[in-house]
Design a protein around this nucleic acid. Structure first.
Lengths: 298, 298
DNA sequence: TAGAATAATTCCCTTTTCGCATTAATCAAG
DNA sequence: CTTGATTAATGCGAAAAGGGAATTATTCTA
């Protein structure tokens, strides 16, 4: 029993006429006649009551028609779905990311993914105390974004972009790109920062900034939410240090002053992972990253 | 895409080894290799990651395996079911019957059917005012049992058996097979009968009995339920006339006296009805009827 | 009664599939 | 590093299946 025979059967069950059906199936009447007979023999079921003048369905063939027709649709549906998986347009990808890109790079990436691969399900994995490398190797995560590359040799990373940190002050602040000499001028300013005791690479750079300038910042408000930081700075409640990319948020009342510190963003995946979804997502990531860099003129 | 290819794929997806799979499918490794390749080409999907040392499933092929496997089972199930329909072992048959056989022939027939064709659904069609021939032609009924054969030429009937009517009296009644001369002796007896004004052939014979004997029976109790009639006669509440086959019910306190009147039982069907269920049921009907006749010694 | 319609059958050719042998690539062991 | 074992792909000829044209046989219609 082959699918082609079933297709012939269904066509004949609809037309109830060997010649017309044969024509429709692009074969001759004799070929059709023999295929149907072969199917009947194999199934051990009479499918049609033929006379020289008419072709009728039997009870069994009415049943088979009603059962097989949706089955062929199903096979088709499965094929299409499998193609989508093959093309990486369907499936699930779990993305891990640091808080510092939650309002800059990530929204861009997610927009790009949802436009290009609308049937792809994206799960955003919140940071846990399990190392991201372990999560990746355990298939609990597929592509983490990190501030440093993976060490494990069975993982592979690329640097997406680097960007400077910037001092963020209100527009009416006495410091600007021209008169800015160093952070030590800000010893007595109120700072709005994320929690510096976090163990992320991002905060370790921040801590380094203050160590290099020999003072501990007077942290007035503590928040990881970059958008919130900007809002508070624009309301003149303090100053902050953020990746320069936040300047794209275009809040009117803040000024960004570039600092001589940089952070990079790396994307990591399992080396040799052939997943079509991964292939597509990495493409999207790199496209988005290069757009992101070219739009900013750092 | 043919079912055989899918079967090859599923076997390979399980074994993940071309040689072993080829052996299991009774073909050579080369044939298998090319069939898989042909399937991949047609689907436009890579199904296996091959190296010279290993064969691995891809994401798409894992999906196809999981989808196709139950589908093949389904195809098998459909085939088996269709065979049952072809063999007349599965389906529905609507049987119409007169009240007079409800407690003699019908139980036997239904027992026989449920034993021989357990998956067959039997619907018992109650008599309505629509003519049985019409119901039959309208496919509201498949095989009616009647006391007379069909007239319509597109229907076909056969006589299953004929049986005598019998006078039914309590054991202590003064009449018996020897001293019984005629019904006119029963002018003043109380009768337990079905409603004589019904238009069935069965009751028309009953009416004829009394016409021939020039009296109207004194109907004390009226019921169509033969078992009830027998019970009442055995309790000496009256006498009755029933088909002789009721004597098989073996109620101890009743005596059957054969009368010179007969009724036949006919079964009718649509001429040229090729339904496998009908074929089987008619076989059962005739077997049951001949058993029924040989067990009684009328 | 002749002719039209139509499914089955026959004969023959083309295409597909298969098996055998070989090739090429990879891995393991010495 | 070399050799041998393993194993999927490939080339080629043979076998099988599928398909086409013509014919046959039957049934219905005019």
């Amino acid at each position: 029993m082959e699918l082609q025979q079933i297709k012939y059967f269904l066509a004949l069950a609809q037309e109830l006429h060997f010649w017309n059906t044969a024509e429709r199936m692009f074969i001759t009447q004799s070929a059709l006649s023999r295929q149907i007979k072969a199917l009947e023999d194999e199934l051990g079921i009479q499918l049609f009551e033929r006379s020289k003048r008419s072709v009728k369905l039997t009870e069994a063939s009415v049943f088979l028609r009603d059962q097989w027709l949706p089955l062929l649709d199903e096979i088709n549906r499965i094929h299409l779905q499998a193609r989508k998986i093959h093309e990486g347009a369907f499936g699930t990808v779990r993305i891990g990311y640091p808080g510092s890109i939650a309002y800059s790079f990530m929204p861009r990436l997610l927009t790009s993914i949802s436009r290009t691969l609308p049937e792809l399900k994206v799960e955003l994995v919140e940071p846990t105390d399990i190392s991201f490398e372990q999560q990746l190797l355990d298939y609990q995560m597929d592509i983490p974004f990190r501030r440093d590359p993976a060490v494990n040799p069975s993982l592979q990373s690329i640097n997406l972009y680097s960007e400077a940190f910037a001092l963020v002050v209100p527009k009416n602040h006495h410091l600007n790109e021209q008169n800015f000499k160093g952070l030590h001028d800000l010893k007595d300013e109120k700072f709005i920062l994320s929690n510096l005791v976090q163990t992320t690479f991002y905060t370790s750079v921040l801590r380094q900034v203050f160590e290099d300038n020999d003072f501990s910042p007077n942290v007035f408000i503590e928040t990881d939410f970059g958008g919130m930081v900007l809002g508070l700075v624009s309301k003149e409640l303090g100053v902050s240090i953020l990746p320069y990319s936040y300047s794209l948020s275009a809040l009117p009342n803040v000024r960004f002053i570039t600092l001589p510190y940089e952070v990079s963003l790396y994307v990591t995946w399992r080396r040799g992972d052939k997943s079509p979804v991964l292939r597509n997502i990495l493409q999207q990531v790199q496209d988005t990253a290069s757009d992101f860099m070219s739009e900013s003129n750092w």
